[in-house]
Write a protein that binds this DNA or RNA. Structure first.
Lengths: 239, 239
DNA sequence: CGAAGCATTGAAGTGCGTCAACAATCGTGG
DNA sequence: CCACGATTGTTGACGCACTTCAATGCTTCG
């Protein structure tokens, strides 16, 4: 299931067969991970990066007073710590939110891959810059938007990203997060997450049951969140 | 004054004379900019990136309801839109907060530079990943910290970054932002910025006058902000 | 000297947090 | 298959950090 990544890359540019083969063979192995496990610890020296094949992973910043913040959610097709290739360590933990599967790309292999195929290097660089854009977007959202707007934006973003890798089906997708975890993402208490979800439900915008979310009124959610997916950079590259 | 950038890069790795020369000659010209001018507009197609030589620039996201959020501050030595090299447009505006001067690097020149010197490519990639880390840090801060903690963190971060490029002098530095702008950074109203600044002053932690800030008790500020500069990745690269 | 921008202060409102229960669901072992 | 504890979700009452509105003083500069 490296397909999800390749699908995203091919959507951005055309990949030659050689490039695609080289990308595939830059991964050395795959690993299965249990839900709620620590994948990479903050500060740990890194010599490999992980591509998420299945499941949900988050970047988690421990806030010293015990609280924590989830700065981004990752789904299949996302490199969860490609930035570790240049940074050599992370300023956050990586944790699984569900049972997951990752493919391992040794940094040595990434170095060879990007040296041999500069265009792939540029694509990988692009991927980390899209992560940066998501962080930027969420810092603005946390700085300026109300709870209900942020929550609407969360679901709008997830729908757009999951559609891009074929994991959404008629505006519905698997959603394994607890309300506590949603709170850690949006900077809200679990109590307020609960009330805000109820308000979205009451307005007929969304349905979140067991481990599944359905966006009943995508248009309405996007209006509420003032969502335009421009920060996801899903369009094709020019040139 | 490309020196500020070179100083940062050399602090991270050793640069060969060839690499340094190539970096220097990748800039085609310099431009002077007035305070409060729009440098790059959101969505505009890009074919060059700008290195800030002098002054203050911010990335600004317009929030559609008229409000805006400044997602990051840039000082001399920062590439303000290097991410535009791979993204080809920006999801935010770039605006000057003071009279400024930038050096222009055409994307074509960056492509040649990084193709010829992959290590420089990796360094430039690293620079954008540090920007991403700052966005990540601030999204966590905005999601979890109180007004006074965020403001303390702002000044701790600026001191660390300005020291790295020689623009701080015994815990003091030029600080041209208005309280409105600080509010747009920290997600606060100008009124509350004012009161929070007063509280920091009252506690003897900081002095912010006309266009200058002095951190009177760096230790105290860092404790208050729980600041550890790890997300700035200012340490030397291993290998 | 007047206007415009910026800083400061007070009073009142509110979105979200905190605290404290209780209900529902789930996984596990007997 | 049921019993059990643990996790997750739900609800209510109350408090506070920050906002909002509104006014006033202080700079700065043409």
């Amino acid at each position: 299931m490296i397909e999800a990544l390749l699908r995203r890359l091919r959507h951005r540019v055309d990949l030659s067969d050689e490039e695609e083969t080289a990308i595939r063979s830059s991964f050395s192995e795959t690993r299965e991970l249990r839900a709620d496990s620590l994948v990479v610890r903050q500060g740990q020296p890194l010599d490999e990066s992980l591509l998420l094949l299945l499941g949900w992973v988050a970047r988690s910043k421990g806030m010293a007073d015990g609280r924590r913040h989830l700065s981004i959610l990752h789904v299949a097709g996302d490199f969860v710590d490609l930035h570790g290739y240049t940074l050599q360590r992370l300023d956050h933990d990586l944790i699984t939110l569900s049972d997951s599967k990752v493919a391992v790309a040794p940094h040595k292999a990434i170095a060879e891959l990007t040296a041999r195929f500069p265009r792939v290097g540029c694509l990988y660089w692009y991927l980390t810059n899209v992560d940066a854009a998501m962080h930027r977007e969420w810092s603005s959202a946390l700085g300026t938007c109300s709870a209900i707007e942020r929550m609407a934006q969360l679901f709008c973003e997830l729908l757009a990203r999951l559609e891009a890798v074929g994991l959404a089906d008629s505006n519905c997708f698997e959603f394994p997060l607890t309300q506590v975890e949603v709170g850690e993402l949006l900077g809200l208490t679990p109590v307020h997450v609960n009330r805000t979800l109820q308000e979205l439900r009451r307005r007929g915008l969304i349905e979140v049951e067991a481990r599944r979310a359905c966006l009943l009124d995508v248009q309405g959610l996007q209006t509420l969140a003032r969502f335009k997916g421009d920060y996801l950079y899903q369009e094709r590259s020019r040139s």
